[in-house]
Design a protein around this nucleic acid. Structure first.
Lengths: 223, 223
DNA sequence: CAAATAAGCGTAGTTAATACGCAAACTTAG
DNA sequence: CTAAGTTTGCGTATTAACTACGCTTATTTG
């Protein structure tokens, strides 16, 4: 029994503009579900690892160049309109907001949607978004997920807002910054925010080397 | 591009005899790697969900009837001896030791191997075992994994040994039992162990209803 | 009956986590 | 140029979680 294999990408980015975690959806160009918002992806048509295929589809459809990509899981597609046996493997991608540059020559639309508010999606894409989101939440407990989603320099408040968006729960700013200050891999810079309508914040950055050294020993998730 | 799809099962059980977490391997009946120990599994040949296929293969090859089954992930098989495009989806199964009854009519051998000491495995099976084990370790932080692996009645020491085997780390018996006593879903029975060469332990059991009520609120992993 | 083994109860100390109060710095509105 | 609004940023006090041990008790085996 033979299968057509598809990859689906759940592309996530954190918008520092409105402090929301967002997922990138594209408007489908072909039937089924033509014209609807759906996850970017496509059939595996080259003899390569799924992750490679996912990265390529992603680049073609959205102009995003291979960021942090990790598999979520495989799904047996149970779409009744498809006669052929079909399976799909989904990947989540973590992308820095500023790095997104829509492909110029591409004909279909792509649009960001803030995370709890995705539109109705065809097939099992809604479930895939949920699964991916949950997987990222779990990953953030073992890996420095914000490294991939925040800009190189950021104020502490931005990091806090990111965690609040990821876990959909408010954090106490004082306890939060106490926690961050204890992290060896978050480094304060001698630089301030500008053009903000309040007291400007000091900027911080991630230090990958410090993370490699003792990051694993510290808690990766805030209070 | 079409794929043959295989499922692989990582069947795990906890042997109360020697307090070890073990994985069930079968001796391959067909080429490639005929005669070698490998994960049970096979090609998906029915239009059904992979989990269903996995449960069926598992029953046929090892006599194990569908226990707790969960997907680990999908792999693009990069075996050079296979001309055709091949992918596989692996599942881990949690099985109570006493429930394993080898299928009588089956021709190939199955054997348990204690977890860090699996033999050399063909294809990418060694990696699959590792991935599955890690996934179970993570799952145990969110789900009552020991429910599925321990006998209905057990002494506390057995639960402790299980966790030690799962995480490959020793636990302090006094702190461990303090922790367990705080769990609402582990219930003491008015019953003692017999025929042990030391002071007999009180027996305990899991209470699924109590777990459903407040299990999620408590820490699921010992100290 | 002594030795071995694990059960089982305890206490003390340390660190992690929670819950707040409040002053300081900057922008904008009037 | 002052007041209001907003966020930064440093603090303290309390509680709960975690760690590290000491020691007694019950049973089987030699």
């Amino acid at each position: 029994m033979l299968f057509k294999l598809a990859v689906d990408c759940i592309i996530l980015a954190y918008d520092p503009g409105d402090n929301q975690l967002k997922v990138l959806l594209v408007q489908r160009e072909n039937e089924p579900a033509k014209g609807q918002w759906a996850l970017p992806g496509g059939f595996v048509d080259e003899p390569e690892d799924f992750a490679v295929t996912a990265a390529r589809k992603l680049r073609q459809e959205t102009g995003v160049t291979v960021p942090y990509l990790e598999q979520v899981r495989a799904y047996a597609l149970t779409d009744p309109t498809v006669g052929q046996r079909l399976a799909s493997v989904s990947y989540y991608a973590l992308l820095e907001w500023a790095h997104y540059a829509p492909a110029a020559d591409r004909t279909h639309l792509a649009q960001w949607f803030a995370l709890p508010h995705v539109p109705a999606l065809p097939f099992d894409h809604a479930r895939k978004v949920q699964d991916a989101w949950q997987r990222v939440q779990e990953a953030a407990r073992n890996r420095p997920v914000p490294f991939y989603l925040l800009p190189p320099k950021f104020p502490l408040n931005q990091l806090q807002r990111f965690y609040e968006a990821l876990y959909q729960a408010p954090l106490d700013n004082r306890n939060f910054r106490k926690w961050v200050k204890g992290l060896p891999y978050v480094e304060a810079l001698a630089e301030l925010e500008t053009n903000v309508s309040h007291r400007p914040s000091q900027l911080y950055q991630f230090k990958a080397s410090a993370y490699a050294a003792f990051g694993q020993a510290t808690r990766l998730t805030p209070y």
